[in-house]
Amino acid sequence: MTEYANTPKPPYYACIFVSKRTEGDRGYGAMSDKMAELAAQQPGYLGVESARDEGLGITVSYWDSLEAIRLWKENAAHQVAQERGKNEWYESFGLRICKVERDSFYKL
């Protein structure tokens, strides 16, 4: 990913998902792409930023409300991906939900 998410003026919400992957792909890449496309179609979705190195992955998705986050968590296809993540793709993971009250960016 090379672009910042185009978020509105705060307040809005950020879901910060951190993970350590297991070895091998086993369909992870395709599911990740599918989930990114599906999330972008959900009401309240504002954008995403993601990075991964050899060990740690961080994905931050932005939403306009806690209700939008709840509905995304309950999405049937997303629940399938969550289960596969727990059983196949992640050694460990964590999720933080935060209210963004201020943001600022600097560009050269």
Rank of each mutant, 00 (worst) to 15 (best):
M31G: 10
D33S: 10
A68P: 03
Y12K: 05
Y106E: 03
G29Y: 07
T7L: 10
R70H: 10
Y106R: 00
A77C: 04
E37A: 15
Y12Q: 07
L95W: 05
E37N: 02
C15R: 00
E54V: 02
N87S: 10
Y28K: 06
A5R: 09
L108V: 10
I69V: 14
K107C: 08
A14G: 06
S19V: 01
Y45R: 06
A76V: 10
R52K: 14
A30V: 12
L95G: 08
A81K: 13
L95M: 07
A14D: 02
E49T: 01
S92G: 13
E83C: 08
Q79E: 11
S92D: 12
T2A: 09
A40L: 06
G29T: 15
K86P: 05
V48R: 05
R52M: 12
F105I: 15
Q41H: 10
Q42P: 11
N75Q: 14
N87I: 00
F93E: 05
R96I: 08
K86G: 11
K34G: 03
W63M: 01
L108Q: 05
A77W: 04
F17T: 09
R96A: 11
A81Y: 08
D64A: 11
E88I: 09
A5D: 09
G24H: 07
I58M: 13
C98H: 02
Q82L: 12
E91P: 09
P11H: 05
E101Y: 09
Y4V: 09
E83S: 14
V18I: 01
E67D: 06
I58N: 10
I69P: 00
E37F: 01
E101P: 01
F105P: 12
A30N: 03
D25R: 06
E54L: 05
R70S: 13
R84N: 03
V18G: 02
G94V: 01
G94K: 00
S50F: 05
D64N: 15
F93I: 04
F93W: 12
Y13W: 13
H78A: 00
Q82W: 03
